[in-house]
Amino acid sequence: MSPYTRTTRRGNVRPTRYRAVQWPMVLWLALLWWVLWGSYSLLSLVGGVVVAVLVCFVLPLPPLRMSVRVRPVAVVVLVARFLGDVVMASLQVAWITVVPPRPLRNAIVRVPLRSESDFVQVVVAELLSLVPGSVVVEAHRASHTLYLHVIDVRDDRDIDRFRERVWAQEQRVVRAFGAELLPEPPAVTPS
């Protein structure tokens, strides 16, 4: 819930439209509109901004509180490594599909993340889900733990290797989005 609430005439407590129009959202929606419109004229851009502001007013989202500092070099490393992983793992899973090892064994592995940040957990889970061979089955927010289904696991050594890979991935995400990765301070509510 957003920290700001208002009381309606009927006495219900609702979140306010505090900062409903946020410029990154408007920018993104306007760009989206522009690309989808496909004519790239000034008129369609203006139309996009108008629609974006309207959307933000009608369907407001609470502002995100996160401390993210993007480090360009680390982002390039993260993306390059991710694309490499996707290609390698795609070929691996494709190979398993065509010539399935008998017996094909899998595992559900618990990986506690080291970072305390929700943002990092989301990004790591998203990236891991896109790399073939692992699906996030369960994510626990309070302890920042991911449970992943991993394909073609033979023994404990494979599982340890997989955990190491997840932690290496997390490390790269942390480096790329360099937040101080401590729990965020609680929101200050106006008195």
């Binding site: 996707v86 290609v87 793992a89 795609s90 899973v93 494709a94 599909t97 399935p100 094909l104 899998n106 889900s129 896109l130 790399v131 073939p132 061979g133 699906v135 089955v137 289904h149 394909i151």
Partner: peptide
Amino acid sequence: RFPDLLTRMHAATKPQVLG
């Protein structure tokens, strides 16, 4: 070909991302 749902998820969601 894959035997159960979770294994099939790998095939259904993944090679197709790169594809």
